[in-house]
Nucleic acid binder design. Structure first.
Lengths: 255, 255
DNA sequence: CAGGAGATGGGTACTAGTACGAATTTCTCT
DNA sequence: AGAGAAATTCGTACTAGTACCCATCTCCTG
């Protein structure tokens, strides 16, 4: 069947259609081609079929080198992240500024790269660049005065906030408010801007700062802190913990 | 041509296959059936085909009553949200506790209902229940001492944090750490629990509280967050808006 | 060197969402 | 009332991801 005798029939536009050389496809090649497509044409143009076509092989062939499209994207995104996550500022110059820049860069990255947002929303990301970034973030947080445990909590909070914001911002892009949409909706949408991100980020960082100075007693490098912490306290930590409202699906919250 | 003479041939398990009565399908019926499927079998069982089959009509028939599956989900999710978002506590008893409970309920909702997470990650949600909830959230925030503008900012921060957290928590559920995954990853994943949500939420609420008590009119000095040097605004992705395919679409439910 | 095990390239086909257009029923206007 | 317009139901088919299994190619082992 491989022998497509092309002498007759369908006169033009017929590629030889030979089987690709054995071993000519490698994971690196697949990832590299995918990166090129994303860079040149964007994430939405990257499909298994387009990728295979670009490489001159059959779609299913790729599955011998990547276990799924998500697996491929994991690696693609890791490469992309590795090139942009690191802040220009140095941690030693102040944890606040460093963290703020790191968060901002990450937000920008997620909004710029739909593939990345997809990956980060799909599953925990543990690729090399992601782990490296996490380590540095934790270092900065420890530097703020938080202990190991609190640093992780704070990291999780920053991470959640950033990803959530990026998801909202990205979804807003290209949103077409239906005719008749309440103005409130527009205003709300308008609050999904990089500027608003920084505002919300400040809430989180201020919370971290307060916690840090409360815990470790002596300030570490407060030179970087822009405002004096007006550490007055008001309402205490609330307790709630509702029983599940709806009997929905599983929640299975554990490691 | 519809007359499928069923007297002979394929002896069993053959449904008459008549055309559904004219006008027997309505948007309300579609939404109602979808709600039932979600309740009984879960979001992943809700497909256009399964829904059509359940209603005894052809898949494409539904598209005369909903403009897309996402349009349908918008309404389904609004119904679900309407039943669970309201906190048991009263705002008057304290804005902190009320906001904390509202956020927790929302997180729980998003994790319990994958459809809801999908919707909230896809586009700004302006359905009735969502708007009602937003109004109440803003009321609580104003009650904390924030002015209108700051209240919206705080709302956006809370919203982003909650959705981001829910997305991470949901994606973690059912995640299978690969056989060589670094232990750090596990630990990190373990930080995506309802308890951790409350911890992070406290950071945000503390930040809000500080802002509220600080400025009943005093413009809190900006200058806190440095700009990312390489930052470039605006969504990078190519825009693509859906130009309202066919009829169906209700006026976006008040929004 | 023959044979078989694995690895690798491919064709076929199934599920999902949905565009297109044909067939059918109801409504509107003259 | 009759005819065209509009609404509605549905069959066909296209894109994407990917499960299944066959065909081919390499290499290891007896």
């Amino acid at each position: 069947m491989a022998a497509r005798d092309n002498a007759v029939g369908t006169p033009q536009r017929e590629v030889p259609k030979k089987r690709a050389a054995w071993g000519s496809v490698t994971r690196e090649l697949v990832v590299g081609t995918a990166l090129r497509i994303v860079a040149d044409a964007g994430y939405e143009q990257l499909t298994i079929r387009s990728l295979a076509s670009e490489m001159g092989v059959a779609p299913m062939t790729l599955y011998h080198h990547v276990s799924s499209k998500d697996d491929l994207l994991d690696e693609v995104v890791d490469h992309l992240l590795g090139e942009v996550w690191r802040p220009a500022a140095r941690i030693e110059k102040g944890w606040w500024a460093w963290l703020a820049e790191a968060a901002e860069r990450f937000r920008q990255f997620l909004v710029d790269q739909p593939a990345a947002l997809h990956v980060y929303l799909s599953h925990p990301v543990v690729s090399p660049a992601a782990l490296a970034r996490m380590d540095e973030m934790l270092r900065a947080l420890r530097m703020s005065g938080l202990d190991e445990h609190e640093a992780r909590r704070a990291y999780a909070a920053l991470h959640s906030y950033t990803i959530g914001f990026a998801a909202l911002q990205a979804s807003r892009a290209g949103w077409r408010p239906a005719p008749g949409t309440k103005p409130i909706a527009h205003q709300l949408a308008a609050y999904t801007t990089p500027r608003q991100f920084k505002e919300g980020l400040r809430y989180v960082l201020e919370g971290i700062e307060r916690r840090a100075s409360a815990g470790a007693g002596s300030p570490v490098g407060d030179a970087a802190v822009p405002r004096a912490p007006a550490g007055q306290d008001g309402a205490g930590g609330p307790e709630q913990s509702r029983p599940e409202p709806n009997g929905g699906r599983r929640d299975a919250a554990s490691g």
